[in-house]
Each structure stands twice: as structure tokens, then as C-alpha cells.
Design a protein around this nucleic acid. Structure first.
Lengths: 231, 231
DNA sequence: CACTATATTTCGTGC
DNA sequence: GCACGAAGTATAGTG
């Protein structure tokens, strides 16, 4: 990994066009040829970048460029698309290089899969007397997150999201339409369960007779004793 | 901005839990207290991070930690949420610090907003005699990108995308359903306009009586004389 | 290899 | 400030 602190301007031409005026920034060149341009603010997203695989070509400035104060021009070309990043360096303040090796990668816990496991284990969160039929119930158009049976014996399809918005309601609607064609299952009720449900999604769900359920992950996690196994 | 190359392990506890095993990485500490942890690969997204505003607290290791080889512990605490990042440093290879100042920021051209402006200006791309009613026509379920009137005086709702896929057709369908309930507007025709329209989206649109229109951004940009002002 | 669904999404914009 | 939609979305899982 190569780290350069430099006063530079940047132009990107590819899926769109973008320009960064002259300023001091960090240029990070990774081993796979990708380049990240970071300022001293914002979030984790760089101001501009080139995704790997890419190749970096360094050129001396032409006469006009030198006149404009450019001491070096970097051209970062994507290997797969015709996206291009042109970095015009006006002043270099620092340059370091380090061998980091391959990273072992991130271990996560608490994503949708964990929510699904917890709700399957605590299926009565849906209501008194509910029983689990199965998780990831396969249909022709994809898997239904959870299929259950209510106290009266009716089938219930659950769509699970960390954040519930309209797309999730549309998805559940498609499943319900399909499941209700199966005489062995019909009539199938729908439940839209998420940690947070957006107002518009709630309105749409209600309009389609779908029940909304807000889940408290921490509370459900507290009930589950396997939470401490990971670390 | 502070740049540290170190052998470290990282634990994140917040909206989810995540763990990074011991390895050599770049730690980037920004002026707003945010921290980014980068490996020498992947894309522009860091392995782990803390969003601003945040505060970094550095602590000497306790007896057990020192025994485990830790020379320093960083605790990055989010100021707004209770997200926390704990970085255990085992070996430091490099440390530099630079004053970058405030960045002037990125100038973009070619995103959906530009397409929308161009199509509104060149509304007859939709057809002979079309007139613009307004852009971003607000409804209860969100804004319709462009509302126009055709030569016969009928209302036309346009959904605009850079890349047209099924989601966009679903979105337009919802708008049309709503708009057609309004007797002042009904009947409302739908037009799905994008730089590229996927075959599946085209089929779905046709099935619902929605017209598809492929836009040539460069050509539309060429007509507009304000395109040259940006750079 | 293509499609699909998720994301500690982040980022801008309108209300 | 909140909610919603776009992103050069990126990324991981599955058929």
C-alpha cells in the first residue's frame, strides 16, 4: 500500500463525470491497483476512487501542464470498464509505502440471518399459539423467510427485514399472491416484520391487509443464550 | 489526518457486532474523530470504521492485555449513538500526521437529476406537441419525476432512471394507480425513460401498458449549452 | 458467471 | 430534523 499526501485536482470520466478542485488530499494506492482519494472529513466513502482491477500510469507533465503547476499526472484506468481517473499532482508533501499482506477478513453477527433465526426460535412473537412450519420456504419466485401457522391453523407468511420499506412489502405481496394459489396452503396471511418500519411501507402493508410487526433485536438476542458463543 | 500502520485486532459493537483478527492494517484518523481501517485490497469500503462525530481515547494496556502482546488500546466512541470500536494495537510500523484543511468537495454531472433537467427542457423527446406540467410532482407516496401533457391533452407520468430495471416499473405502476384515482388527472399514461432499459423491465412495462423510452444522455447534453459551464 | 437481496450502507433533497 | 430515493451504489450468497 502506497500513501501519498499531495495537493491535487482529480477528474473522473466513466459512468458519470466528476471533478475535484485543487486541494491537499490523501491518495491511497492499493496492491490491486485500486486508488482512493480521501479528504480529512466525510465518512468512509472516498471523495473519488477507482475500483480494482486497475492500472496506474504516471506521466511527466506536458509543457502546458507544467506551466499550470502540475508536477506529475496519474492516470488510473479500470481494467474491466472504460472508467478513468486522472489525478493532476501540483505538490507532494509525503510519500510512504508498506507491505500489509492479505487480510483475514471480517466476522459479523446481527444481520438479517440472525434476526430470522431468533424469530424462528421465538415464533410466538407473532402471536399466541403460533407454530413454525419452516424457514426459507422455497417457492418458484424465491424463498419465503418464515412460514408459520396461527392458533386457528391458518398459514402465515413472514417477510423479515432489518429496515422495512416499500420494496419488502412488494416482495411479500408477490409471495402471498403465489402461495394463495396453492389450495393446500390458502388462505395465507402476511406479516411484515422488521426492526424499523417506514411509514410509507406501513401504509402500503395495511392497504394490502398485511400485518406489521416491529422487532426488538436486543430483547430477542437477550432471550437467546447462543449470543455469547461468537467471541 | 493521522495515518498509522499497525498490527492490530478490532472489535465493533453497535448496530451489529463484528470482529477483525490480528493483521497489519492502515488506521486512518480524520479530523472529525472518525476512524477508518483499511487493508491492502477490497474496494473503497474499509474493513471497519466509525462514522463522525466520534472521539478517540487511547489507553495503556492492562496487565492481561500486555501479556497478550497489546501495546495500546484505542476506543472510538460515536458521539450520537452507542456504537463503539475497540482497536487493540500489537505493533506499530509507521505513524504520520498531516493537515489537509477543508475540502472544496466534488462536482458531479450525469446523475438522474441532470437527466431530469434535460428531459424537462427537451420534453418533446416524449413526442410531438408534449408540454411540461412540472418536475417532481408530489404525491402521497412520493414524487413523480416528470408530469406532462400530450398533444391530445392527456396527462403523462414519466419515471426516469439512469438504469431502468423492474423496480422502476413497479414504482411508476404505483404512481399511475394513485394518479388515476384523481378525476382531474385521469386517465394518466405512463412513460418509463432511462439511458438503458433491461429486457425484463421492458416486458413488464409493455405488459402494463407503459411506454419505454431510451435516452441518449450525451446527445441531450450536446443540445444543452449549460453543459460546458461545469468544467 | 449471472441474478438477487443486503448494507454499521452513505449522500443529497424536500418537507 | 426526519423521511425518502439515488448511488460510478458495493458486496455476499445462490443457482
Amino acid at each position: 500500500m502506497r500513501l501519498v499526501i499531495a495537493r491535487c485536482s482529480v477528474d473522473y470520466i466513466g459512468r458519470l463525470r466528476a471533478h475535484l478542485p485543487l486541494a491537499v488530499r490523501l491518495l491511497m494506492v492499493k496492491a490491486d491497483g485500486s486508488v482512493l482519494i480521501h479528504s480529512d472529513g466525510g465518512s468512509y466513502k472516498p471523495l473519488n476512487w477507482m475500483s480494482p482491477p486497475a492500472t496506474l500510469r504516471v506521466a511527466e507533465p506536458g509543457e502546458d501542464d507544467a506551466e499550470a503547476g502540475i508536477i506529475e499526472t496519474w492516470t488510473v484506468q479500470s481494467a474491466k470498464t472504460d472508467d478513468k481517473l486522472v489525478i493532476s499532482i501540483h505538490e507532494r508533501f509525503s510519500e510512504t509505502s508498506h507491505d500489509l499482506g492479505v487480510d483475514p477478513g471480517l466476522i459479523k453477527d446481527g444481520v438479517e440471518a440472525d434476526l430470522q433465526r431468533l424469530l424462528a426460535e421465538q415464533i410466538t412473537k407473532l402471536g399466541e399459539g403460533y407454530t413454525l412450519i419452516r424457514r426459507e420456504y422455497m417457492t418458484a419466485i424465491g424463498p419465503v423467510d418464515i412460514l408459520a401457522r396461527d392458533a386457528a391453523g391458518a398459514t402465515v407468511a413472514v417477510e423479515l427485514k432489518r429496515r422495512g420499506d416499500i420494496d419488502g412489502v412488494e416482495q411479500l405481496t408477490r409471495y402471498l399472491e403465489l402461495l394463495n394459489r396453492d389450495p393446500l396452503l390458502a388462505p395465507v396471511k402476511g406479516v411484515f416484520a422488521a426492526q424499523q418500519i417506514k411509514p410509507q411501507a406501513r401504509v402500503l402493508a395495511h392497504d394490502r391487509g398485511i400485518e406489521c410487526l416491529t422487532l426488538d433485536y436486543d430483547a430477542m438476542r437477550g432471550v437467546d443464550d447462543s449470543a455469547s458463543r461468537l467471541f
